[in-house]
Nucleic acid binder design. Structure first.
Length: 312
DNA sequence: CTCCTGCGGT
DNA sequence: ACCGCGGGAG
């Protein structure tokens, strides 16, 4: 962060003050930010938002909480119902993890979402980001919350580089160094940093002209140097992937109220929609459908039942 | 093509 | 430390 402004107040406080004021002014009106949102509702939102964009999450989140307003309500249903309600949010293992977390919350915490970070980390599907996000946003505890947006903001503001590299433990320390002392401001600042990364300090085309902390930005101050070659692993192509084949099986089972035959599941994996038009799949790996099927069994996302296949 | 409020397994 | 894991949108 640039410190070319003589100040009685530290730059840390100025950055937090400006960013928080911007957040109050400009932040999107997201439903899980409404006052009175339960810790469970926050937890559900954080699960859904892992690798899935806000706009796609909102309708699923509303429907989910209407149906399962408490951990106990979800835990009382079969996990397959959670997978079905997950719909097309992607990475459906998260639905299974969320159901498992609800069961753990009922069994270990009397049905109340814990507020302690270590207790949260022990829940299935809750990692370093989600645990701190729940503690900060649901309970107002003071913790650094660092997601991919915040890591990019820190990379630019503090380190003067265009993009963040691999996640590091020091990310939390970087955020801690900027975090306001009082809990309420700290919680807002965590959300504000994420929001800035989401709508201003974006990966591809940052809108620095609208950035409330541009004057302290190390990246801007050094002339927006080009992206240093980072080590970030590129995501594999989706088209033709095992993920796509798995997704087709899951889509078939979500829309089937009953179990389907193994053959139907394998055909779905191969991209055969079963209505007329033959799909060209000459270049496809012939072992892929079976591999996708087996991996879904291993994940517990589908089960075989008397020679047929259904959600768990 | 890239990116998106990450996570658990290895 | 690396990898697999959906699906949508720019």
């Amino acid at each position: 962060m640039r410190s070319d402004t003589p100040a009685c107040i530290s730059d840390r406080d100025r950055v937090a003050s400006e960013l928080n004021a911007w957040f109050v002014r400009e932040a999107r009106d997201l439903p899980w930010r409404a006052p009175g949102t339960s810790a469970w509702a926050v937890l559900v939102s954080e699960f859904m938002l892992q690798q899935t964009q806000v706009e796609r999450v909102i309708p699923r989140w509303i429907a989910w909480l209407e149906r399962w307003p408490t951990p106990a309500a979800l835990a009382a249903n079969e996990p397959g119902e959670a997978v079905r309600a997950w719909d097309r949010l992607g990475y459906p293992r998260r639905a299974l993890w969320l159901h498992r977390a609800a069961t753990e919350i009922v069994g270990l915490h009397g049905g109340e979402v814990p507020r302690d970070v270590d207790a949260l980390l022990a829940l299935t599907g809750v990692g370093p980001y989600t645990a701190r996000a729940i503690a900060a946003f649901a309970y107002g505890e003071r913790h650094p919350v660092v997601d991919t947006n915040t890591r990019r903001v820190l990379a630019r503001l503090v380190h003067g580089v265009a993009l963040a590299g691999m996640p590091k433990d020091s990310d939390l320390e970087d955020m801690e160094a900027l975090l306001p002392e009082d809990r309420a401001s700290a919680a807002v600042f965590n959300a504000a940093a994420m929001e800035l990364g989401a709508i201003v300090c974006t990966a591809r085309t940052p809108r620095c002209g609208f950035c409330p902390v541009a004057q302290w930005c190390e990246w801007r101050g050094s002339g927006y140097p080009a992206n240093a070659p980072t080590k970030r692993p590129r995501q594999a192509a989706f088209e033709g992937s095992d993920r796509q084949a798995r997704g087709r099986i899951m889509a078939l089972l979500r829309r089937s109220s009953d179990a389907v035959s193994r053959e139907a599941a394998l055909a779905a994996a191969a991209g055969d929609e079963g209505h007329g038009k033959a799909r060209r799949r000459s270049a496809q790996d012939p072992t892929q459908p079976q591999r996708a099927f087996d991996s879904l069994i291993a994940d517990g996302l589908i089960v075989e039942f008397e020679g047929r296949v259904k959600l768990p």
